[in-house]
């Protein structure tokens, strides 16, 4: 039962991922991305990582993707950008990239399935079924991994400051660049 559930969600993930990168309209791409994220959170559930799945839905799909959509709306792309997009991306120009990724894909598949690596037997015999509770994660988080928390906090802070700085200077800059051009 879990297996075919996994298969469905895997299929959804792959299809929506493909649609994301081949969509011409940015908003369509974003929405497909959200679908992928949800499907991935489904897989997390299947793997027993319920907390991660929840986070995925709330933070990843919820917050980050919304931010994304919010920004694309700010750029008032409109019809012009759609035509531009069609011009920017069509299959003939990206044939090189396609071949390259295909080779990479085959190599990885080859390594995964045909290389004589002994990954399967080690894992199948001892696995446990119960879920990992949030309390357990919390203890781990503020136990041995407390350093990790501090680092991610620092990272978030720095991202915050940078984002503000760049977007603030975004206002001033266009004005100055205009009169700079005039001066040149």
């Amino acid at each position: 039962m879990i297996d075919n559930l996994f298969l469905i969600s895997a299929a959804v993930i792959l299809i929506s991922a493909l649609l994301t990168i081949t969509a011409h309209n940015v908003v369509h791409a974003l929405l497909y991305l959200v679908v992928t994220m949800l499907a991935v959170s489904m897989v997390f559930f299947l793997l027993g990582a319920s907390f991660a799945a929840a986070l995925q839905i709330i933070v990843y799909a919820g917050a980050i993707m919304v931010l994304f959509i919010f920004v694309t709306m700010m750029l008032h792309q409109g019809e012009k950008s759609l035509a531009q997009e069609r011009h920017l991306f069509h299959f003939s120009t990206s044939i090189g990239a396609f071949i390259l990724t295909l080779i990479l894909f085959c190599e990885l598949i080859f390594i995964l399935f045909f290389m004589p690596l002994d990954i399967d037997n080690a894992l199948t015999h001892t696995y446990h079924s119960e879920f990992i509770s949030v309390k357990q994660i919390g203890k781990q988080l503020y136990g041995p991994y407390s350093l990790l928390v501090v680092i991610s906090a620092m990272m978030l802070l720095s991202a915050l400051i940078t984002a503000i700085h760049i977007s603030k200077s975004a206002h001033i800059l266009p004005k100055t660049t205009k009169n700079q051009e005039a001066k040149l």
Partner: peptide, 10 residues
């Protein structure tokens, strides 16, 4: 791999 194709192609 799909992600990589996306980065390279778009």
């Amino acid at each position: 791999t799909i992600g990589i194709f996306g980065v390279l192609a778009r």
